[in-house]
């Protein structure tokens, strides 16, 4: 397979083409919603990498928020306006933060790992909420963005951001797919099953996990950046609070971890479900989401992706 595209990668390219073409027929609101859903899918893609290693983070909103606030702060205080530059810096900063925290967090496993992530995310939340220059509970608007020096806003911004997000989703899925198919990637299930044996192979488990943590963090940061650009606003409750981390874990399990495409598909379905539940049952949308999650956990232990997976085998 070296040098060639695998089936998954061909699939991803086809998906990219479909998503890009879909812009022609999608209503405006669906473009924004699609962008946000794919951006959150990016975060879940990161969680998928961790999950394959048997780890889960209850604080992934820490990096999601870092990405969003990187864009917001650099726009407001740093004067940077280019959406590509801002997004890439968000990847970078979130990845850097993940690296630093990962030095510590990668020593932990299971629920301790999850809880430490939660603690750090709530620390960021505590700082943001109480700091007026960072917008405190209100957050602040992210407006006046540019593309190669030209100001863009409104529909143009949404469209460009959507295309950019589609490209990122495709590129990141392929990179993650290749990573998971590499030697390092194949160590994931091995670490999950028995890490001491892995260490006998001469591999530093801690370093391997830190790498995964950095990848997951950077992906979450990118997702946060795109979301901030699409929504035009960042605030701690929507980007850093533990409920948001909970939603990411929700989508990870809901979507299933069978493929790098699952997080995106799961995230899109999740967002659609939520916005319609919110529209038609404004006081019952949480109940709806909870019920759906229970049903998926009970009847589809491998997530929604197992439905897709089952299909091709028959045919």
């Amino acid at each position: 397979m070296r040098g060639m595209l695998s089936k998954t990668e061909i699939g991803l390219f086809v998906a990219l083409a479909v998503l890009l073409l879909a812009k022609l027929i999608l209503p405006e609101w669906a473009v924004t919603l699609g962008t946000v859903a794919l951006a959150r899918g990016l975060v879940v893609l990161g969680l998928l990498i961790l999950w394959r290693t048997g780890l889960i983070s209850f604080g992934q909103a820490l990096f999601f928020g870092t990405g969003g606030y990187t864009v917001g702060l650099l726009r407001v205080y740093g004067g940077l306006t280019d959406i590509f530059v801002l997004t890439l810096l968000a990847f970078l900063f979130a990845g850097l933060l993940a690296y630093l925290l990962g030095l510590l967090i990668s020593r932990y496993r299971e629920i301790f790992f999850a809880m430490l992530c939660l603690a750090f995310s709530m620390m960021l939340y505590g700082v943001l909420v109480k700091t007026e220059v960072l917008g405190s509970t209100d957050g602040f608007n992210v407006v006046g963005l540019t593309l190669f020096g030209f100001p863009i806003e409104g529909n143009t911004l949404q469209t460009v951001n959507y295309f950019w997000m589609c490209l990122l989703a495709c590129a990141m899925s392929i990179l993650v797919h290749r990573y998971l198919s590499s030697t390092m990637g194949h160590l994931s299930p091995a670490i999950r099953d028995n890490e001491i044996r892995v260490e006998y192979l001469g591999v530093s488990v801690q370093r391997t996990i830190n790498v995964k943590f950095v990848i997951a963090g950077a992906l979450a940061g990118g997702g946060g950046a795109i979301t901030a650009i699409a929504v035009g606003h960042v605030d701690p409750d929507a980007m850093v609070y533990w409920l948001i981390s909970g939603e990411f874990v929700f989508v990870t399990i809901f979507a299933g971890t069978g493929s790098v495409a699952a997080p995106f598909l799961g995230s899109v379905i999740f967002e659609l479900l939520r916005t319609y539940a919110f529209e038609y049952m404004p006081l019952l949308w949480q109940l709806t989401m909870g019920t759906v999650l229970l049903i998926v956990i009970v009847f589809l232990p491998n997530g929604l992706w197992s439905l897709v997976q089952r299909g091709p085998r028959k045919g």
Binding site: T8, G11, P27, A30, S259, V260, V268, L272
Partner: peptide
């Protein structure tokens, strides 16, 4: 995940999103 999926089936998922939105 080698045998998991073909382009067809990813498109099905995307199709659902687009159809619902439309």
């Amino acid at each position: 995940m080698r045998k998991i999926f073909s382009a067809r089936f990813l498109s099905v998922g995307l199709g659902v999103f687009i159809a619902v939105s439309l």
